[in-house]
Amino acid sequence: MMQIPNDKFKVVGTHLSDTEKISKPSLSFWKDVFIRFRKNKLAVFGLILLAILIFMAIFGPYMTEYDYKMTDLTNKNQAPSAEHWFGTDDLGRDVFTRTWEGARISIFIGVAAALIDLFIGVAWGGIAGYKGGRTDELMMRGADILSGIPYLLLVILLMVVLGQSLGTMIIAMTITGWINMSRIVRGQVLMLKSQEYVLASKTLGASTSRIMSKHLIPNSMGPILVTMTLTVPSAIFTEAYLGFLGLGLTPPLASWGTMANDGLPALRYYPWRLFFPATFICLTIFAFNVVGDGLRDALDPRMRK
């Protein structure tokens, strides 16, 4: 048999040292999420829409020469025109200005409710999940019983009794609103606390609060963020619903719900008074929902291709 010297051979495929090489740039978790979120066209559209809505909520009321509570009885129920872009209402107030004033209130209510839910829910769910055992049982049963109370009925009741103010509305929404968040945080903490890095941290003598704030909560941030994004539209919906029942904020404050309620009797003759607030309620809820869905998909490791 003929001898073939070794130097006649040459490696054409992978070299041993190549297999160890990392060809893809390493991505942090959030970068990866961002890339996947960006691919979701609907979610990106929602985010842009949201940016526009927030921009208009901040600057919209200053774009006209009118004030949201400035009445002008000589110009009431005007159709949309160059003077009044969205027309005027039954007291001659500029609907454009009032719409963006209402956007401020709606978005404020949504964000405030989501933040309060976040604090209570993370504290309650985090403690229940981390302590486990009897504490967990007791805390979560408490949450179960509270969650049996029908949400909207409770909110209506509180608005009737405590008076129609922004504070009451936010309190009413958060009384049972935090339960969902606490359940999600508890589930996450239960899952995470048995992982090795938590054990390592414990062995190194880290205190409970440190483990919570450095390990458990940051690693649950994904589901928390999704829940928050989806709380905002439901709070905005509740505000509009209450306004529509006549339980919203009292005039001259402009909120989308009360504007829609005021516009309802005039629907036949002055449809724009209902049309504009109603459209923006839908757009805002839509934007938050789509962004929330996109975030959830982007955070879900099963969706990774």
Binding site: L42, P233, F237, A240, Y241, F244, A260, L264, L267, R268, P271, L274, A278, I281, C282, L283, I285, F286, N289, V290
Partner: peptide, 17 residues
């Protein structure tokens, strides 16, 4: 997505109108 974003009372008024 539209159905989820449009609150029932707005849907109702638009349908009615």
């Amino acid at each position: 997505v539209l159905g989820i974003s449009v609150p029932s009372f707005i849907m109702a008024t638009f349908l009615q109108y």
